[in-house]
Amino acid sequence: MTAATLPLPADWRDFLALTKPRVMTLVVFTGLCGMLVAPVSIDPVLGFTAILCIALGAGAAGALNQWYEADLDGKMKRTQGRPLPAGRMERGSALHFGVGLGAFSVILMGLANNLVAAAILAVSILFYVLVYTVWLKRRTPQNIVIGGAAGAFPPLIGWAAATGDVATLPILLFTLVFLWTPPHFWALALFMKTDYAAAGVPMLPVVAGERSTRTQIGLYTIPMAIAAIAPWALGLTGALYGWVAIITTAVFAAMVVQVATRSTQPGDTMRPEKRLFAYSILYLFIIFGALVVDRWI
């Protein structure tokens, strides 16, 4: 076979796009915060390596998710420009890239940091790919509730990379991200409902309707708020974190009340839902940032 008859190889930028760099930002940030609030200091090089491994692991999970969901992505406006549905990459390349990157990240974490962090990283990748992507996503409207655990692992991994074990604080941070995921994703699902319906993904607004989704957003926010304030209430952080958590969670709750008590009107721009979705991302950045500042002042 001559070079002229070969299919066009994927561009390196397409491999980068497979890793979902925007999603990775929050994962890296929460992992870094988990490491920085640990009671022991870590060598900067080993700390950098741990964060790199978390980023690579998240990238691998994203690549394998896109490999498995290429057909779904092609049906949704939001995702049809991705490398696989757009035809810029062969599926086999995405699979090899994802498996290779995932294995590399876990092995490097094990060699440079410790086996506990490597094991949690491996579990988080497998959980996202096998439990969320393959098993739950197309089968149940509770997909993102259980699957949300995958995105909650990074603070636990960051902490474990520094200390070699897990403790109450990182478990609370895991719980916070886990309980934050349903309001965050369902706010998105409310204004992307038609996209999910077209792709046949059983997201809650598609299967149970908007009313039920809005109620569920409200219900999940209650334990999320408790998890956010718990580190301070249990004496694991100082007053600075406590106040930031109370204020930012109160704002979050106010936005949730607005979303939970309204219903979609004809020609609705879904502004409260979009605002809640955007604020929920900022909320997690602020609360984890406050945790680090509180620990270091």
Binding site: T2, A3, A4, T5, L6, P7, L8
Partner: peptide, 14 residues
């Protein structure tokens, strides 16, 4: 893809 000289160049560039 099309086996044209341009395509060949594109493959090499990639």
């Amino acid at each position: 893809q099309d086996p044209t000289p341009n395509h060949d160049e594109l493959i090499r560039a990639r």
